[in-house]
């Protein structure tokens, strides 16, 4: 075990310099020792390789999970917006509205929206570039205002950009957030729903919930149920935030 300990120290670079020189000299003299060092060098590299493979497999499993969820979400959205279901939903909304103002689950626990809201980070300025058709100057101006939380001024610019670039869904997200903060809730929810079939579907869902919170006339059980679903999901990026919001929710 003593030799193995030395070999390992040597291979992991933890052997003191003075000992290292002596160890290398010993390897020159002792062919068996040299072979042992080479063998353990490979064994340790093999362990690292197994770790890398396992890490890559983990990423692949996350990726498969995301793609499967997106697929389910897209199918659900398509089903939700079929004419028949839309009628049922409209009826349900009428019923749900009768419960509005009845439940105020947060009571005096503070303004849940203010506690939960964080503007989505600026990806546009960070990414830069563009393919020549994208008005980067206008985007920088809009995102500059957005970053300074000047949402009223940012909104018309973002509306224009989102309209002109439907292939860049994140613009609809910024447009929705600016509308949300300006109090144009219908417009905000329209923008967030436009993200349903995109890679920003999770973000759209989250900010839609925040819009409900800010509007204040939410249906508590439905909102609580949506938050519970997110909190239970291991793959939702707002899982922790949903958990936090639910903790503030007083027990029935």
């Amino acid at each position: 075990m003593e030799t193995l300990s030395q070999i390992e120290q040597y291979l992991t670079g933890e052997m003191p310099e003075a000992e290292k020189a002596a160890f290398e000299a010993a390897m020159q003299q002792d062919e068996h020792l040299r072979q042992e060092v080479e063998a353990y060098r490979d064994i340790i590299a093999g362990i690292e390789l197994a770790g890398e493979d396992a890490f890559e497999a983990k990423l692949q499993s996350w990726e498969s999970q995301i793609q499967a969820e997106n697929k389910v979400q897209n199918t659900t959205v398509r089903k939700l917006f079929s004419p028949a279901v839309s009628l049922v939903m409209a009826a349900a909304v009428v019923l749900l509205l009768t419960f509005i103002f009845v439940f105020k689950p947060f009571g005096d626990a503070g303004d849940p929206f203010q506690q939960a809201f964080q503007p989505y980070p600026d990806e546009i300025t960070l990414m830069g570039g563009g393919d020549g058709t994208f008005d980067q100057q206008k985007a920088n101006q809009a995102m500059g205002l957005y970053n300074q939380q000047k949402y009223t001024e940012a909104l018309p610019l973002l509306e224009e950009l989102a309209g002109a670039n439907p292939d860049i869904p994140v613009l609809a997200l910024y447009e929705g957030i600016a509308a949300l903060q300006t109090g144009v809730f219908e417009k905000a929810q329209q923008s967030f729903h436009a993200l349903d079939n995109t890679s920003y579907a999770f973000q759209g869902e989250w900010y839609n919930i925040l819009t409900e919170l800010k509007k204040g006339d939410y249906d508590a059980p439905a909102l609580q149920s949506a938050l519970s679903r997110i909190a239970k999901s291991d793959t939702h990026p707002y899982q922790k935030e949903a958990e936090k919001l639910l903790k503030k929710w007083p027990a029935d």
């Binding site: 093999g46 690292e48 197994a50 890398e52």
Partner: peptide, 28 residues
Amino acid sequence: RNHRQQSAAKLLAQLGETCRQILILYYF
């Protein structure tokens, strides 16, 4: 990666969970 390294990577899974875990935690 050479043959012995790839063998070690494959055989690690057959070493038993405790050993696999301890070696991964330390070396990886």
